[in-house]
Simulated assay, not measured.
Amino acid sequence: MLPWSADLAGRIDRHVIDSHVLRGNPLGDPHERPLWVYVPPGYDDEPTRRYPTVYVIQGYTGHLAMWDNRTPFRRPFPELADEVFAAGQTPPAIVVYVDAWTAYGGSQFLDSPGTGRYHTYLCEEVVSWVDDHYRTLPHRDMRAITGKSSGGYGAMVTAMMRPDRFGLFATHAGDALFETCYLPEFPQAARTLRDLYDGSYEAFLADFRGRVAMTRPGDGVLMEIYGYAAAYSADQDGTVRTPFDSNGALVPEVWERWLAVDPVRMARQEQYAGALKSMRGVWIDAGTRDEWYLDLGATAFHQAVLDAGLPSERTRFELFDATHMAIEYRYPLALAWLCERFAA
């Protein structure tokens, strides 16, 4: 494994989208966003051929330039994805890499008065732009979305909320079963706020922005929870409500707002169950040693998908021996499976 970039059999076009819906967002984040579009080998040789599309979204703190990062002895996903098509054994597709970074580290791909309209940005602006500029097959049955962690969460809820846009999805260790994956962190966050910031999130944010990030105890968990709260439980005026009090105990009316967007609970509701039942393909996986117990969330969501009426032959569920980290080798497996489902 060479420690520098390799030549691709296809190519990645790097664009910038000027988003109307992200203009004036609450955090003042850029409304011009990078967008990478991968076209498979042969795209330029067959000018009349059209292709299905797979949209790739990232986990919390993910931003588009991170796809260029390289780990010793391993290759980044764009190269692994290219290899899927270069081998010639998987039906080709266009792969779109989407950026939804915010000043809080992520958007959860939802529309929120705390962060901005990232769900609309993805489903309306990005999808329409790609369909206008590339030879796609512009139909929900030829459009998939995939991601890991918060990106896996985004894949689940986006497909459930917009089955008119996406007819397939893959989630790798996606945030789900919130009482299992999120609750254990609330007492830790409350204790850190008490000991270092007199119980004040405002004091933490002011301190965090005035120094090198991630250099004090609790930075990661405090910022992560606040980023989720900005997506799940912000008031219409942008005020972010956290789901626990100064002792780490739940604030029920806020916690209920989080639970309302838990994929497992959403899947049990009639409107979302109908969307799941309509999917042409659903891939769900997670590592059995996931630090946030997202293997349990994956299992619960898989059962909810089956309960919604999606035939088992249109699903793929796997638990594998791994933690939450460094599971990029799973992404091309799901990509190939989704592309085969396009052709089914």
Rank of each mutant, 00 (worst) to 15 (best):
L2R: 15
D7F: 07
L8A: 13
A9G: 15
R14D: 11
V16G: 05
S19Q: 13
H20P: 03
R23Q: 15
G24P: 08
D29Y: 11
E32Y: 02
P34V: 09
W36V: 11
V37K: 13
V39F: 08
P41L: 11
G42R: 08
T48Q: 00
R50T: 04
T53F: 08
I57K: 06
I57D: 05
Q58T: 12
M66I: 06
N69P: 02
R70S: 05
T71R: 15
L80V: 03
L80W: 05
A81W: 06
D82S: 03
D82W: 03
V84D: 07
G88A: 04
P91H: 08
A93Y: 09
V96W: 07
D99C: 11
D99L: 10
A103D: 01
G105C: 08
G105Y: 06
Q108C: 15
D111H: 05
P113R: 01
G114R: 08
T115S: 04
G116W: 09
Y121R: 10
V126D: 05
V126R: 03
V126S: 08
V126N: 07
V127Q: 05
W129K: 06
P138T: 11
R143F: 02
G147C: 10
G152Y: 11
G152Q: 11
Y153R: 09
M161T: 12
R162K: 13
D164N: 13
D164H: 09
L168H: 09
L168P: 00
A170M: 14
G174L: 15
E179D: 15
L183W: 02
A190T: 00
T192H: 00
S200N: 11
S200C: 10
A206H: 07
D207Q: 07
P217H: 04
P217Y: 10
V221K: 02
L222F: 01
G227W: 03
A230D: 05
D235V: 03
G238C: 14
D245F: 15
D245A: 15
G248S: 12
G248C: 13
V251H: 06
V251E: 10
P252I: 04
V254Q: 06
W255N: 02
E256P: 01
A260P: 02
V264D: 00
R265K: 01
R268G: 00
Q269V: 00
E270M: 03
E270S: 13
Q271M: 04
Y272R: 02
A275P: 01
K277F: 03
R280N: 11
G281S: 14
V282G: 02
W283C: 07
D285N: 12
D285P: 01
D290E: 13
D290T: 14
D290W: 07
A298W: 05
H302R: 09
A304V: 01
E313S: 12
T315D: 08
R316Q: 13
F317I: 13
F320K: 07
A322I: 10
H324Q: 09
M325Q: 04
E328I: 05
Y329G: 11
A334N: 03
L338C: 04
F342M: 06
